[in-house]
Amino acid sequence: MVASDTDAHTRVNVEVAFAEPHRQHVIALTVPSGTSARDVVAMADLPALFPERGTDFFSHAPLGIYGQALREPDRHTLVEGDRVEVYRPLVVDPKQARLARARGDD
Results as ranks from 00 to 15, higher is better:
79 V>P: 01
101 R>H: 12
43 M>H: 11
91 V>W: 07
80 E>Y: 10
100 A>R: 15
79 V>W: 00
52 E>G: 04
30 T>N: 08
19 A>V: 06
102 A>R: 15
43 M>N: 09
6 T>C: 03
25 H>A: 04
78 L>G: 00
42 A>K: 10
39 D>V: 09
9 H>A: 09
74 D>R: 06
80 E>C: 02
65 I>P: 05
23 R>G: 00
69 A>N: 00
91 V>R: 05
81 G>R: 08
21 P>T: 03
37 A>L: 09
101 R>S: 12
59 S>H: 07
22 H>C: 00
99 L>S: 14
85 E>W: 05
44 A>Q: 05
38 R>Y: 12
27 I>F: 03
68 Q>L: 05
97 A>M: 15
62 P>R: 10
103 R>V: 14
62 P>D: 13
81 G>N: 04
19 A>E: 03
20 E>Q: 12
55 T>Y: 03
4 S>R: 12
74 D>L: 03
90 L>A: 11
28 A>Q: 11
99 L>N: 14
91 V>M: 13
28 A>H: 12
5 D>M: 12
90 L>F: 14
48 A>F: 06
60 H>M: 05
89 P>Y: 06
35 T>R: 02
103 R>N: 13
89 P>H: 11
55 T>C: 04
104 G>D: 13
9 H>T: 12
49 L>W: 02
89 P>V: 02
60 H>A: 08
104 G>R: 14
